[in-house]
């Protein structure tokens, strides 16, 4: 059992690191739209993938740790609040949706989750500046969310389905059966997932 927990921590850690790396890189990409706070939300690929591959608890932990560390890496209080609000609302929505959605519809969680994420961010922006006029940006953010969310959702979906076809997934989740070649398994996971993130 201890081995299973350790493995889980390691896997969650790796995924968190990936999410963080994606997040830090995309934070540097300024978007041409005259809309405050809009970002691609690519890091959600990891969260979404984790939600299905590992379960909501792991996904939640990865999300929170990523947000926490992310604010350390840059952005300050404002960015932290934004990530937190966006991530929380998205996570809650996905928590519900995953119950009604089939394997080939994971991308839907990406799209709708991104909408929730962006809506939450505008909400925070309005609360912080106390200007309800900002709500004028909501529709564009929803549209952008649908587009980027669908893409990241599809990526997460592809990764998950690809992984499902191998025996890796059951071994990730279960942990009861020890792999014969631990090093090999770790290496394969890395490569497969990295390939699918692209």
């Amino acid at each position: 059992m201890k081995r299973a927990l350790t493995k889980r921590i390691v896997i969650d850690g790796v995924l968190t690191a990936m999410a963080l790396a994606i997040w830090v890189v995309e934070a540097q990409i300024p978007l041409p739209l005259p809309v405050p706070g809009i970002k691609l939300g690519l890091a959600n690929v990891v969260t979404l993938f984790a939600m299905f591959a590992l379960g909501p608890l792991d996904a939640g932990v990865i999300l929170l740790v990523r947000i926490g560390l992310g604010s350390v890496f840059g952005g300050g209080l404002t960015a932290f609040l934004f990530s937190l609000a966006g991530g929380a609302l998205c996570y809650l929505l996905c928590l519900l949706l995953r119950l009604v959605v089939k394997d080939k519809q994971i991308w839907v969680l990406g799209a709708l989750g991104a909408i929730a994420h962006n809506a939450a961010q505008i909400g925070v922006a309005i609360a912080l500046t106390r200007t309800t006029g900002l709500v004028v940006y909501l529709p564009v953010l929803v549209a952008a969310g649908v587009i980027t969310g669908t893409l990241t959702g599809l990526a997460a979906q592809a990764s998950y389905l690809a992984l499902k076809r191998t025996t890796l997934l059951s071994r990730l989740k279960g942990g009861a059966s020890l792999p014969k070649e631990p090093d090999d398994v770790a290496g394969e996971e890395d490569e497969t997932e990295k390939k699918n993130q692209k």
Partner: peptide
């Protein structure tokens, strides 16, 4: 639409 500087709460 408004100009916003979020970290400074400026609109």
């Amino acid at each position: 639409s408004p100009l916003v500087c979020l970290p400074h709460r400026l609109v």
